[in-house]
Design a protein around this nucleic acid. Structure first.
Lengths: 139, 139
DNA sequence: TTCTCTGCAAACGCTTTGCACGGAT
DNA sequence: ATCCGTGCAAAGCGTTTGCAGAGAA
């Protein structure tokens, strides 16, 4: 389920993020990946195609995306941040063994409890922690 | 709503955490506080009573607590971790302005959606982000 | 030109670790 | 004597930042 370069380019431009080549590639990767990569993972993977790519550019780009609301940061088990291209509301399951990050559906009607009087709520996140199917089967 | 030193001591011992003086004081603080302190906050506050206290001891102690399941780590807006003595299930509201952390109730019946086939779920967390009442009133 | 992205390297800041001291059993 | 918590300082590590060079408009 690949997204075309041109489409990502437009997507960024529409959200007021200057669509440089690197940024498009990074966002493209974020959208295509299901596994919520860390900066390191993005770096390693994209470096195959973009040998001069630097970590600083990864972080700068992601911060630009996050500022535009296009990317969310997920803090998992380790100390590295995982990044998630924003799409529909969904929760995250974090495996304590493989440190993987899985999406799961959030049926929105069960999520409407989240209101606090006098507070402005801009974002809602649900995390589950435990052991994923794959790690259970492997043991 | 202070917890007695002796009670915290017993609490730690019952969970196989050696209840040293510092550890009891740190856990005492975590239980008494409503504001989910950072390591820095714990350090500053407890240093008034325990002038020789070091940051390393704070971290070591908290890690001991976390290993025993007595403390949860909350990643807020900043890069510092907030620590929360585990009690009843509740969610956390994170203010993007004052970076404060507020509890809110999680009526459990609305939280039961969280099941994934083939996965073991050990923990559930809900985060809300936005602007807290106090910051709204101050502006 | 002017603006901004890029990439290297250095800086930052939170957390962890090595090690020697000291108290408790 | 042994074990373990403590505290200082140093190391680690993910992330951010300063700055010069390159590219686009």
């Amino acid at each position: 389920m690949k997204v075309s370069y041109e489409r990502v380019r437009t997507y960024l431009k529409d959200h007021n993020v200057n669509p440089s080549f690197n940024r498009v590639k990074i966002m493209e990767y974020l959208i295509d990946q299901k596994n919520h990569p860390t900066a390191e993972q993005i770096y390693k993977e994209l470096k195959k195609d973009l040998p001069t790519l630097s970590k600083a550019t990864i972080y700068n780009s992601i911060n630009a995306f996050a500022g535009a609301g296009l990317v969310k940061t997920i803090m998992g088990e380790g100390k590295e941040a995982h990044y998630d291209a924003v799409v529909d509301p969904h929760g995250h399951f974090l495996c304590e063994i493989c440190q993987g990050c899985y999406d799961f559906d959030l049926s929105n009607d069960k999520f409407e409890f989240a209101e606090i009087e006098g507070f402005i709520i801009k974002d809602k996140e649900v995390y589950l922690r435990g052991i994923c199917k794959k790690c259970l089967e492997d043991n």
